[in-house]
């Protein structure tokens, strides 16, 4: 009986069946999910706030949220926060740009030529397993303690995921798709532009996002090696002067900036990827 009831309306609305039930169903679930997701941090923050306010705990090493936001607010008001954000963002973007360009070029060459791959890939795989921090002393010796060595370190971090992404994507382009291009007698250049590039784009975007994520990780390492401004400097400074609220403020800013830049990258690439037929949860 109830099974019949469930089947009946679906059959009746067949042509429009898929879009109609999914949209109203997905909306509340998304909202619920968001609420569920922030429930824990909000509860913890509130609990801590209350615990500190009522004197149950002391917030010296772990400041309550109100002090954290006050610190952020003060930093923002004096303009200091923006100076630090600007410095860090500039380093990340410069390093990301350099690493991406190099990774794309080397990855494309290794993907296109078997010989180049056999020459380049083993070395790069070896270098990839070097921990990032290990480069720091060398870069300081080579490039000094100012911007160059920092940007170089971030670029190294971004290079590898981009290189691997491009190289892997090119070597996994389907021969069958390439044959379609050959049947229509595309030149080598057209083959790259009209078949290879679009075919690797989804993997490339993922690689870029991964590279950017690593860029944010490496900028901290870079700024630990002596910086006079930047979010990493705020961290070091907070530790040396015993200001845990400043450390947390910097961490929070990192989280927000990382999320925003990743979101921008994803949003910028989305229009080029609407054709994708991959598994994608709604939103």
């Amino acid at each position: 009986m109830s099974a019949m009831d469930a089947v009946q309306p679906r059959d009746a609305a067949q042509p429009a069946a898929s879009p109609i039930p999914s949209t109203p169903a997905a909306k509340p679930r998304l909202g619920t999910k968001f609420v569920l997701g922030i429930l824990l941090p909000v509860a913890l923050a509130l609990g801590w706030e209350i615990a500190v306010a009522t004197g149950f705990a002391q917030g010296r090493l772990m400041p309550p949220p109100s002090r954290l936001f006050k610190t952020l607010y003060d930093l923002a008001i004096t303009g200091e926060l923006w100076r630090h954000i600007g410095a860090t963002l500039a380093r990340v973007l410069a390093g990301f740009a350099l690493g991406t360009i190099a990774g794309t070029i080397v990855g494309a060459i290794a993907g296109a030529s078997r010989l180049a791959k056999d020459i380049v890939d083993p070395t790069l795989q070896g270098l990839r397993s070097v921990p990032s921090i290990a480069w720091v002393p060398l870069f300081i010796l080579w490039l000094g303690i100012f911007e160059e060595s920092k940007i170089a370190l971030i670029a190294v971090g971004c290079f590898f995921p981009v290189y691997l992404g491009v190289f892997g994507a090119i070597s996994s382009v389907d021969r069958k798709t390439v044959e379609v291009g050959r049947m229509f007698r595309l030149s080598q250049f057209q083959l790259v532009r009209r078949i290879l590039l679009p075919a690797i784009l989804p993997a490339y975007v993922l690689a870029l996002r991964q590279g950017l994520g690593l860029g944010w990780m490496f900028v901290v390492a870079a700024e630990f090696m002596g910086a006079s401004e930047g979010l990493g400097y705020l961290l070091v400074d907070g530790q040396q002067l015993g200001k845990p609220d400043q450390i947390l403020a910097a961490i929070l800013t990192f989280a927000i900036l990382g999320k925003i830049t990743d979101g921008l990258l994803a949003a910028a690439s989305a229009p080029f990827l609407t054709w994708q037929d991959a598994f994608a949860p709604k939103n």
């Binding site: 798709t177 044959e179 379609v180 049947m183 007698r185 009209r194 054709w275 994708q276």
Partner: peptide, 28 residues
């Protein structure tokens, strides 16, 4: 090498997923 007057239809459609139907048809 592939001749301009010879077309091929494979066992699978082999459409280019990043082009619309019209884009695919216009490919050649």
């Amino acid at each position: 090498s592939p001749h301009p007057c010879v077309g091929m239809i494979f066992q699978e459609p082999r459409l280019l997923p990043w082009l619309t139907v019209a884009g695919n048809v216009a490919f050649g």
